[in-house]
Design a protein around this nucleic acid. Structure first.
Lengths: 319, 319
DNA sequence: TTTTTTTCTGTTATCGGTAACATCGAAGAT
DNA sequence: ATCTTCGATGTTACCGATAACAGAAAAAAA
């Protein structure tokens, strides 16, 4: 492995000049820059991350804290992780995954946090490294998230376009910002269209939404659309509607939210609001690295729109 | 952050002695060891991973190569990843995730590879760092895997116990060792019980196994058990059996394989052969780190038994 | 022209560890 | 009693980079 010194020798300059070409190119003559670049290419020079880290007093490690209980795995995270990992790699950063079990966390340059609930913030405050949260929050932390409200608004809009007469919202019974935003999106859009609102909140498990349908089956007349806060809930709705003999998508429509894995497992495929998790993961990385390299910046968020991905649980738009 | 020197000063010894206490305690007097340990505790000394890495010419990074196409995410990996990540953290190693997209891989101390197919081995050969594969292979690489054969043997045995008359194997149409082992497990056990073997091989997608049932529905008389090479296949079988009005689990039984996420999504829950992925992840890490620290050792594998996790797709054993 | 300033490049010390060699006292050998 | 040998500790140099300072040449000001 060639080092800075090797490059320096080859280019007939000092190590410092080579270092400058890499980190502060504006402080070096064009002429030398060219020579150094030539030497680097010729030797196929790759900077030694560890040495750089040591000299800069960095660890080149970002910790990903997954605060959610992992007893039932969210496939969600896998895509996110890939997005994060790829982006970190671009910047020569390593990843360390921290789950609720091993709170004994070592050193790092910054954190990306996901799955946090309100009760976690007190603890988060004690971490004094740059940090970006995955999911909107009201505690002033930088975050990356989907535009939850707009997302559900789009769903309602689409439901109206499809002429579903009743539009029900199956939400989550947690008081977290993302859940509230989704509900707000529903309420907003319904009000805008002057439609009667109907909100149900359940624990985020498919069997609970299935039970809900079973127990309230007679209430729902034909031509109803269920907009669900998660694909998990949508899955339960779909399953039980079929069980009860409901015709999907003609009599009953379903729109889920998340678009990771579950929508593909369902039969028929769910129409869902798909988040671009790998982009979001990459964005989270960029935000933390910004903070690390620039000291304390003001809050900066990245908000992504979801994409309405059509499956078999909504009928075709009439032309 | 206290350093080696700080500890050395406090204990009135040289840096080297402190270093020895940590890395070669047998070369230091009991007396000094105690003093140094006291000093370390008092200062709450944590070794600087980067410095150590630099001095040892290590990167303290393990790359996890996921060679599988990630267009449909395997929730499988999430658990594995958690297992790997936790174990790496214990040893102050960072993780870098490499997917098929970014084959441009930087430096690392070793690799854990998963999702490889026969065509990948040529390329794997070019990597000359310590490597452990996730999944059995016939190329002489160290690996970690479930005992695929025994696993399916257990399934057959259980099916016999439950008095299912016909036992069918729904396998995967790939020529990979793990798939072959599972099939072999079926054939072995069936032969042992003197039962008629019936093997079907399909692409690993639930809709293909569903289609299979739809098209061959009349062939399967009641009292049949389907042993599936994956939960994905089991899911499709379950779905379509219900669609056709088959009674699960009394008339038709299903046993899946993997026990990650999908079995919980299915309705009813799948009876499945559960792999302990986090343990396996940890084992993979231990194997690579062994290789890294000990130079080229002979091949070493870690094979884990699966656990038969009962769900609603098999009937109760008669007492 | 001389002095001052600016711009660029090289030197030195340092980040926090570790290997290799040097040193020194005590135990064993002769 | 002298010479080895050995075990325990300290010294020095180095891993591969960077910041801070120093120095030299070029540009600007006098």
């Amino acid at each position: 492995m060639p080092t800075l010194s090797d490059v320096a020798k080859k280019a007939n300059v000092s190590k410092m000049t080579v270092s400058r070409v890499i980190n502060h190119p504006e402080r070096v003559t064009e002429e030398l820059k060219i020579m150094v670049h030539a030497a680097m290419k010729e030797l196929n020079y790759k900077p030694n991350v560890m040495a750089k880290a040591l000299a800069n007093n960095r660890t080149q490690i970002i910790k990903l804290l997954i605060l959610e209980e992992m007893d039932y795995v969210e496939p969600y995270y896998m895509q996110l992780l890939v997005g994060i990992a790829n982006e970190l790699e671009k910047h020569s950063y390593g990843l360390q995954l921290v789950t609720k079990r091993n709170t004994q966390i070592g050193d790092s340059d910054g954190y990306i946090v996901c799955g946090m609930r309100e009760t976690d913030y007190k603890w988060l405050n004690t971490l004094d490294k740059p940090m970006v949260l995955f999911g909107e929050n009201t505690h002033g932390y930088d975050f990356v998230d989907s535009d939850n409200q707009k997302s559900i608004e789009k769903a309602v809009e689409y439901g109206v376009l499809l002429n579903y007469e009743t539009i029900v919202f199956i939400g989550m019974d947690v008081n977290e910002p993302f859940a509230l935003s989704r509900e707000k999106g529903y309420r907003n859009a319904m009000e805008m269209y002057g439609l009667k609102q109907q909100v149900v909140k359940l624990e985020n498990r498919s069997r609970f939404s299935a039970t809900f349908i079973r127990e309230n089956w007679q209430e729902f007349n034909s031509n109803t659309l269920f907009i669900c806060a998660t694909d998990r809930l949508a899955l339960g709705i779909s399953r039980e509607l079929q069980e009860q003999g409901g015709n999907i998508p003609e009599e009953y429509g379903i729109i889920g939210h998340d678009g990771v894995f579950l929508d593909q497992i369902a039969y028929p495929f769910l129409t869902t609001l798909k988040q671009s998790l790998d982009e979001m993961g990459a964005a989270a990385v960029q935000l933390v690295l910004n903070k690390i390299n620039a000291g304390g910046l003001p809050q900066e968020n990245a908000i992504f729109e979801t994409e309405l991905k059509l499956g078999g649980t909504t009928r075709e738009p009439s032309v």
